[in-house]
Design a binder for these strands. Structure first.
Lengths: 165, 165
DNA sequence: TGTTGAAATGTTATAACATAACACTATACT
DNA sequence: AGTATAGTGTTATGTTATAACATTTCAACA
């Protein structure tokens, strides 16, 4: 049962967790795809699951590793990047440009913009919506005669848990 | 005079401009280095100039091309990246993570945080400070028990000039 | 004035991140 | 069944960035 051991190791290594929150997210994505006639293929599901179960921002080649091991198929980068494109396009995941990593979205299609708190110590991130702040950003840009199409707001620092320690 | 022609072509290609604003920026950086005992070597000067004269976000390997041509020395990536590190560390340039490009800072050391408007059509960027907005970001993060160390706010969209057209 | 130590630079190689291009397959719609 | 489209497999390569170690520069000091 070498394979099973390896999968257990991967789950530990990559800290995959199948919480209620995760299950809900997956269910919600299924629904949204249903409603919008989006094809949520096995590959896309698998990759979404890997991203959402991992509690930290995950890198494309880490996804590739997990995917290859868990499905026992040799996957290549384009497979991962194509799925990532699909997931970003439809708002199911986000890319954190400042660290070349991807994170699952816990409220897809609910919000237009969100921002991210990334802890430099534990690497855990938080996805946040602040309507007020979003409005502020838009106003500030509009004041400068600029029409916003999309924004990236990533905040690095230290989370409460890490400060306590 | 093949070399000269090539330099002219590069200047056109890379849209280098030596405006008063640019000269002032360079002078200011000299001053700041003087005051802070920073070694503003020839390489660092040259690379800062290339970035600041270029009116758009410039990529590391574009800097490398210009540098190699203008100085007629074979430069390698680490030369560029080391200078970039120095310049970012001291607030003379910024990196736009969303497009892997670098931009000169027109008011180094004056501000703590700034944000960027990037036009998707003409690629020109604007560096903006909005004290109110910055405070808002800090407040929003603090409300979530998060201590901010640095922020990235990049706004893509369309600038006024491009909308008019 | 020679020594030495730290910072800067040169050079080679390679790591890390991402996409182009083309062949093949599955599906869904006439 | 035919065919068009979206999705996937595969190879190769493009793009962005850094590791590691050798060499040079230059200021501080004995």
């Amino acid at each position: 049962m070498k394979v099973k051991f390896y999968v257990v190791w991967l789950i530990m290594k990559f800290n995959l967790k199948n919480t209620k929150e995760v299950q809900d997210s997956i269910a919600r994505v299924f629904e949204i795809c249903e409603l919008n006639n989006l094809v949520f293929t096995e590959i896309r599901q698998k990759i979404f699951e890997i991203i959402i179960k991992y509690k930290k921002p995950i890198k494309a080649y880490e996804i590739l590793d997990v995917f290859t091991e868990e499905t026992e198929k040799r996957a290549h980068p384009p497979t991962i990047y194509r799925a990532i494109d699909f997931l970003i396009e439809n708002g199911f995941i986000h890319k954190l440009n400042s660290i070349n990593s991807y994170v699952g979205c816990f409220h897809p299609k609910v919000h237009k913009e969100c921002y991210f708190l990334i802890c430099k110590i534990c690497n855990i991130y938080k996805e946040c919506c602040d309507k007020n702040l979003t409005e502020n950003i838009f106003k500030s840009a509009n004041k400068r005669d600029f029409i916003v199409s999309n924004t990236t707001l990533e905040i690095e620092g230290h989370c409460n848990d890490c400060i306590q320690k």
